[in-house]
Design a protein around this nucleic acid. Structure first.
Length: 288
DNA sequence: CAGAGCTCCTGAATGC
DNA sequence: TGCATTCAGGAGCTCT
């Protein structure tokens, strides 16, 4: 499952091939992803790419006529291929560029999205972006690495929130990009029990939580950067696999904090479903 | 408004 | 070995 760092890495990876290139056309093989791919997209021809950006886990390709919004869902991936490379199973969309390369979107589970936000053309011929009004962006919280995402903000936002802290940090209207893996890992590092109610977080706990979330995301982005050179591959998946996971998926294994050289208490990682998401934690060192 | 639950989909894992 | 069943999971949407 691509997390925010994977999307950031994907963006940086495809950037050199897309920047200033002209999209000759789109080839849509599967029109139904999470939402239908807009008809309009298949009609677009010869539009110049201006820049790339990212908001939450949405990758944004800005063109002179509008923005292409791509979400990788949980099994999506992007790759740069040559025009002659034949599509494989689940290769749903090709963006054909004038430089001989193709941006290919593959997504077995089709939880991803490929959308279009057209610009409005004014009477004088100038084009105005409608991205600011794009409905999927309306309720998004701060980026985790944004300075506005800080202890004071999290503390205030958590007051009266009667939900588990794990659900709270995974709430996109609070902070974006904290998926299930990072939520589990961050709570372990912050020594907070996933079921602890958000409203009971202290200022100091918020401070620690913010710090570890930023560190984890930052570290993953840096690691992703090391795999960029291999991006032109049918499946150049960079990512969190490189990262040492402490608790995620480690049910019944000894807690890495409780079981050190000095102390071996034998406490094991346990799992629990919270809000339809599997949670992994150590009952002993993660406090409610 | 807040919170819980539903939903899309298919590959991998598990069960018999 | 093979078929059937179960499960995971991002995040918007619907219902209470």
């Amino acid at each position: 499952m691509p997390e925010l760092p994977e999307v950031e890495t994907a963006m940086r990876g495809i950037q050199p091939y897309l920047q200033d290139a002209v999209i000759e056309k789109f080839i849509i093989r599967t029109p139904k992803l999470r939402w239908d791919i807009p008809e309009r997209l298949s009609q677009l021809q010869n539009i110049k790419i201006e820049k790339l950006s990212r908001r939450a886990k949405y990758l944004i390709i800005h063109t002179e006529q509008g923005e292409i919004i791509i979400h990788l869902g949980m099994s999506g991936s992007l790759s740069i291929v040559k025009l002659t490379d034949l599509p494989q199973k689940h290769d749903h969309v090709d963006m054909q560029l004038n430089n001989g390369y193709v941006l290919r979107f593959n997504d077995p589970r089709r939880f991803g999205a490929y959308l279009w936000v057209g610009k409005t053309i004014l009477e004088d011929g100038s084009a105005v972006s409608n991205l600011a009004d794009f409905h999927l962006f309306q309720k998004l919280g701060f980026e985790p690495l944004d300075e506005n995402f800080n202890a004071e903000y999290l503390f205030k936002k958590s007051r009266n929130r009667n939900i588990p802290v794990k659900s709270f940090i995974m709430d996109n209207s609070v902070v974006v990009g904290v998926g299930n893996i990072y939520a589990n890992e961050s709570l372990f590092l912050a020594q907070l029990h996933p079921l602890k109610l958000a409203k009971n977080l202290t200022r100091n706990q918020c401070k620690i939580l913010v710090t570890v979330i930023k560190q984890e995301i930052q570290r993953a982005i840096q690691q992703g950067g090391t795999t960029l050179k291999d991006f032109i591959q049918p499946d150049g998946k960079p990512g969190y696999f490189a990262q040492e996971l402490q608790v995620y998926g480690k049910k019944d294994q000894l807690c890495p904090r409780c079981n050190t050289e000095i102390e071996k208490c034998g406490t094991k990682i346990q799992s629990l479903v919270i809000n339809q998401r599997n949670s992994y934690f150590c009952e002993r060192c993660q406090r409610k």
